[in-house]
């Protein structure tokens, strides 16, 4: 068992634990901190898959930009205590959703384990597919039109966010 496998197991366990804390914590701010930790663990997992640039992007975009937004909104909202303590009355509904997601996970595991194993990665990665050079070449040759469309999406997002966050909607 190589160093990559050991790293993957440690990072995967930490990622699952922090994801569970994110989902089941009562206080939004603690969930946000756990989610930042989760993003760092995922960046480590990307490194074991030889996606160096994307690991850096993960930390910059998710743990940096998006989570700063989330934490700002949590602080702006100033929720009072009775809202934080959600009622545990609807146990039936929660049980139903957990069973439903369990079935979903079971189906996914069956597909992954029972799938054809011909083309799967056996631990040997060529480490140059994650470099900036390879990604940029791919991005600006085969994916040029989606890049432009993404630019339009971000422009629309700026307008939408400003409009939504304005004080008066007249």
């Amino acid at each position: 068992m190589g160093i990559t496998s050991i790293l993957f197991i440690i990072l995967a366990i930490l990622a699952i634990i922090s994801a569970l804390i994110t989902v089941f914590n009562k206080q939004p701010i603690k969930s946000a901190i756990a989610l930042i930790f989760h993003f760092f663990m995922l960046a480590g997992i990307y490194l074991t898959l030889a996606a160096q640039f994307l690991a850096v992007m993960q930390i910059l975009v998710y743990a940096g930009a998006i989570m700063v937004l989330v934490i700002f909104v949590i602080m702006l909202l100033n929720q009072n205590d009775e809202e934080l303590h959600e009622q545990n009355k609807q146990i039936k509904r929660k049980l139903f959703s957990v069973v439903l997601s369990g079935i979903f996970l079971f189906l996914m595991v069956m597909f992954i384990i029972g799938g054809k194993q011909s083309n799967l990665y056996d631990g040997q990665i060529s480490s140059n597919i994650g470099t900036v050079q390879t990604l940029a070449k791919e991005l600006y040759s085969n994916f040029l039109v989606p890049v432009e469309i993404t630019g339009i999406l971000l422009l629309a997002t700026i307008v939408g966010a400003v409009l939504m966050a304005k004080k008066r909607l007249n």
């Binding site: 959600e86 959703s97 595991v109 992954i112 990665y121």
Partner: peptide
């Protein structure tokens, strides 16, 4: 040859996705 193959990554991905689904379905905030 490493012990961890793509299937383990996909399993981890599936588990994390399921945790996300549980969060969307059960939480109120």
């Amino acid at each position: 040859m490493e012990f961890i193959t793509t299937e383990y990554y996909l399993l981890l991905s599936g588990i994390l996705f399921t945790i996300g689904i549980i969060g969307v379905l059960t939480r109120k905030n």
